[in-house]
Design a protein around this nucleic acid. Structure first.
Lengths: 243, 243
DNA sequence: ATAAGCTATCACGTAACGTGAGGGTCAATA
DNA sequence: TATTGACCCTCACGTTACGTGATAGCTTAT
């Protein structure tokens, strides 16, 4: 297949295909003697993967690095795409809901807080972004979020205090009142620097024990703290009403 | 409210607010003596509108022009936003479906055509884009689609042939076999230069009679043709299985 | 007074193409 | 064979919407 055929099939521009070739993202398997690009079925498969990554807002550079990673696994990627797309849809539903509420608000049917008016627009923290990044992206993930790097010393100290508080009770039952009260503070803190759904919060806890870097960093405050936190975070999330 | 508070509330950057001020899209109602921007409740309302338009991929210039249009009506806009968001979700559902089918395909459960693999990615023709453009945007809408401007003369002739064929039968019942066969050709033609769901096809027909420019252009081929086409297109869409 | 956080403007840089220019290739048809 | 329309190539400037860092002033609590 040549560029126009591919472009028409897929719904992208010829220029885009040129661009992808230039940057080495999608190189056609062959070219004619005249220099025409000829895309194979395998090329189309790759293009599909590229479009899935694009759909979940991966920058092209990162898509390229990911596809070139020897550990890249297609099925695994598809599962991740699916999760991220479902999250994207959830957020879109929020926006739709916001529009509908705004309509009702304008008709005088309901009240609306300032927060209500902007529900769904903050997509800076896709809960699966951390997971994707850990697997295929930027390896410089810190213990809470990359934003933490820009924290003031006071905020950093607050973070450490929270870690210390949690470390002091890590031998207790993660479901105990004391543990849950402290984890609640952790949840609030995280939502000051980001936006975590309960599901994402729980997922983050899992990452603390799955990713050695997290574990090592957290366990500096006390052996077994990462595990304790993961458990407590899961309990916390499970005991809360889904919003 | 000052920039950080607004940015945190909404989930956008301070830089974005600066940018919007610079380009005159969202100017704060007041500033302090020190030059700090102070955003009012009215500013927040406007920001909400901006974000809705952004969510449906309006470029900033166009958002600005729209908001400044004396005929701009908020409730009308919200209704349009809602429709466009629902369409966006429909397309997203298609992508999710494509991912899921691809997973099954990889497991060997199902077959998959090349077209199937890219379902949902062609979003260059949001069916409500025409409507939005007619109301608030680029007034240079042609009779079928802007792409028609780039058509070859052969394609243009094909278009005219279709119009003439439809004009020749415009005194028949829009639901008749003859009318429906010819409308089917029109549907196919449109889907060669774009991508129209049945709903969008029907909506386009409505626009032929609502928008004088369409009506005038089409009725050059025969008085009452626009009305005939709108009717026949509605019948065609209603008689088809929803895909 | 001090310090931390917030604020301003300025300006270069980035990502992902869109667009136009200029010219070659391909395939059908006369 | 010549012609024509559609397709193809490379080149390169331009666009959009910010991100980022630099520099310096402002605000508020201690």
């Amino acid at each position: 297949m040549r560029v126009k055929e591919v472009a028409d099939l897929v719904g992208i521009s010829v220029r885009t295909l040129h661009h992808y070739d230039e940057i080495g993202l999608l190189k056609p398997d062959t070219t004619t003697d005249a220099g025409y690009r000829v895309y194979s079925d395998a090329n189309l498969e790759t293009l599909q993967q590229i479009l899935f990554f694009k759909e979940v807002d991966f920058p092209l550079k990162r898509i390229k690095a990911t596809l070139e990673d020897p550990s890249f696994n297609r099925e695994e990627a598809l599962e991740m795409h699916r999760k991220m797309l479902l999250e994207k849809r959830r957020r879109l539903d929020q926006v739709i809901n916001t529009v509908e509420k705004t309509l009702q608000h304008w008709k005088g049917d309901i009240g609306m807080t300032a927060e209500d008016k902007f529900k769904g627009f903050d997509f800076s923290h896709n809960p699966y972004e951390l997971e994707a990044r850990e697997r295929w992206g930027d390896k410089a993930v810190d213990e809470a979020h990359e934003k933490a790097k820009g924290m003031s010393e006071a905020k950093q100290e607050e973070l450490n205090e929270l870690y210390r508080g949690l470390a002091a009770i890590r031998d207790k039952d993660p479901a105990s009142n004391e543990a849950q009260e402290t984890i609640a503070k952790w949840y609030v803190f995280l939502n000051e620097i980001g936006s975590y759904s309960l599901e994402a919060f729980k997922g983050l806890g899992q990452m603390y024990i799955v990713d050695e870097r997290f574990t090592k960093n957290i366990d500096q405050f006390g052996d077994g703290l990462a595990q304790f936190m993961a458990d407590a975070m899961a309990v916390y999330a499970d005991n809360r009403e889904p919003n």
